[in-house]
């Protein structure tokens, strides 16, 4: 059995590697980190190499490669030999965005996705999207597809501001 000191010694590098990788911002939504979005799945130390597991949001998300390179660079900057692995199963859902991540999105002007979105039905249950600027629920969808693959384009009828809505998937 490992002593507390031994366990801590083994845990520390892993923790340090996680913090380094977790601080990488999303290239398209830089207000949130890869950890906030839930796309950084894990960081482990395997035979002295920091192995980060990353999952893509949308199949065609052009940011995936940029994110993988940035995570690898962050781990190297923290002094690790690094490798990034892409995992696709289980598939990412917007439910993995942390509460802190949701708050950051809202503050940035992007309406966060609703929770418990994993079913196809709730994918389309977007009837209540609160305006991220004034909080009004009186909003309307302008376009199913927005500035990036993960967002739809909405407008607030109260403050008249257009805004992005992070689609539930």
């Amino acid at each position: 059995m490992l002593s507390v000191a031994e366990r801590t010694a083994a845990e520390l590098p892993r923790r340090r590697a996680w913090l380094a990788a977790a601080s990488v911002p999303d290239p398209e939504v830089p207000c949130v980190t890869v950890a906030d979005l839930g796309i950084l799945r894990s960081v482990d130390i395997v035979d002295g190499v920091a192995v980060a597991k990353v999952t893509p949001t949308y199949s065609g998300c052009p940011a995936v490669l940029a994110i993988e390179l940035a995570v690898e660079a962050a781990l190297r900057d923290a002094g690790f030999e690094a490798r990034v692995e892409r995992v696709i199963s289980p598939a990412w859902t917007t439910d993995w965005i942390t509460d802190e991540g949701r708050e950051k999105l809202r503050a940035y002007g992007i309406a966060p996705p609703r929770k418990t979105s994993s079913s196809i039905r709730s994918l389309f249950g977007e009837d209540e999207v609160a305006c991220p600027k004034c909080g009004s629920a009186d909003t309307e969808k302008l376009s199913e597809f927005g500035s990036t693959a993960c967002k739809a384009h909405w407008r607030c009828n109260a403050c008249r501001e257009p805004f992005d809505y992070f689609k539930c998937i």
Binding site: S59, G60, P62, L142, F145, G146, H153
Partner: peptide, 20 residues
Amino acid sequence: LEEDLAMPNMALDLIGQARA
């Protein structure tokens, strides 16, 4: 404009699925 966003968005989905 909305369709000009929608078309490449869906193209990205399809090409992303093709890549996988």
